[in-house]
Amino acid sequence: MQLLIFYVFGFIAIFAAVSMIVVKQPVMSALFLIVNMLCLAGLYALLDAHLIAALQVIVYAGAIMVLVLFVIMLLNLREKKGLITRHKVAMQGIGVVIVAFVFVLIAASMDFVSFSQAGAVSAEFGTVAGVAKTLFTDFILPFEIASVLLLVAIIGAVILSKSRT
């Protein structure tokens, strides 16, 4: 049953990701990206990462997609003849090579043996309390650094938008 759900979510996620790239209208791409993110939330739930699954829906599919839609409206994209359309095949080739390189790097850094030997997780794993306990005790430094990262994002947003005044 779990395997079946995994294949359904995985297939829809890949289909949505490919559609996102292929469709011409930017808003359609954004909508397919939402579908992709919702399927990823389902996959997180399958992995017992319940809090992450909920946050994936709220933060990514909700808040960040709003930002993406704003950017689409802001730029008001029309198809233009530019560098990318002229060297289309070369650009796509470079993109494929870079993605393949990153994929190989990620795959090489993974420890597949310990994945296959992983046993059942505790009942608390991935729940709000479980994540909170780990985050606020073992990973306190990354948590505090995250606040600095958010501060940088705030200042960056203000500087980029206010530079002309």
Binding site: V59, A63, V66, F70, V71, L74, N76, I154
Partner: peptide, 17 residues
């Protein structure tokens, strides 16, 4: 399909943070 004010984008960005 006209251009939108940049203020929308700033507010959305700060909202996400």
């Amino acid at each position: 399909a006209s251009r939108f004010s940049l203020s929308f984008y700033v507010i959305a960005m700060l909202f996400i943070v």
